[in-house]
Simulated assay, not measured.
Amino acid sequence: MEFLSVKITFFFWMHLTLLIVMAAGFCQWLLLYIYAIFLPILIILRAWFYFKLKWQLFLVDLCYCINLVLYIYIWVGPSVPEFLYVIFGISHGPVLTAAITFRNSLVFHSMDRMTSCFIHLMPPLLTFGIRWYPDRITHWIAPFISNQDLNLTEQSFWIFALPLAILVFHTAVYLSFLVIVRPSEEYVGFYSYLTEGSSGIWPTIFKKFARKWRPFLYILLILTIGGTSVLLNFLWYNYFYANLTVLCLVFSRLIWNASTFYVDVFRKKGMDSEPYSVLWCSTWCDEQPDTRSANKVK
Rank of each mutant, 00 (worst) to 15 (best):
V86K: 05
W158E: 12
A242V: 10
A294R: 00
W213I: 04
W75H: 11
R131C: 05
I100H: 04
L32F: 07
A161M: 11
W48A: 08
W55L: 02
S229P: 02
K212T: 04
A165G: 10
S273Y: 05
V60R: 01
V86D: 09
S273L: 01
Y241K: 07
E154T: 12
V173A: 10
D264L: 10
Y71R: 02
W55G: 00
Y71I: 00
A24E: 02
L4D: 02
F51G: 04
L96E: 14
Y64K: 00
P203Q: 12
L167C: 09
Y64C: 04
I159K: 09
V265S: 14
D290M: 05
Y241H: 11
M114L: 15
V6A: 10
A36N: 01
D290S: 13
I43A: 05
Y191D: 11
A98S: 15
V60C: 00
L152D: 11
I34T: 02
C65P: 01
I34M: 03
Y218H: 14
T127R: 09
I205R: 05
W29M: 03
Y50F: 14
E287F: 08
L167Q: 13
L279M: 14
L70G: 08
L175C: 03
R214H: 05
W280N: 10
V181Y: 15
K268L: 14
Y73N: 04
F38V: 03
G200M: 01
G77A: 11
C27G: 03
P123G: 11
S184T: 13
D61E: 09
F261W: 13
D61Q: 07
F102N: 07
V76P: 00
Q148E: 13
L57W: 01
E186V: 08
S229I: 00
P289G: 03
W132G: 08
C63D: 10
W158H: 15
S176Y: 05
A142W: 05
G129E: 11
N147K: 08
P215M: 03
V69A: 14
P81W: 04
R46E: 10
K208Y: 02
G93I: 02
V6S: 12
H120L: 15
T245H: 00
Y71D: 03
L162P: 14
T245P: 02
Y187H: 14
E196R: 07
N238L: 09
S277Y: 02
V179Y: 08
T101M: 08
S229V: 01
C281L: 05
G189L: 07
I130Q: 12
F51I: 04
L150K: 09
S252T: 06
A210K: 09
S156I: 03
E82V: 00
L126E: 12
L57Y: 00
H92I: 07
K268Q: 14
L231T: 06
Y50K: 02
W13Q: 10
L194T: 06
F169G: 09
A210Y: 06
F108C: 09
L121T: 14
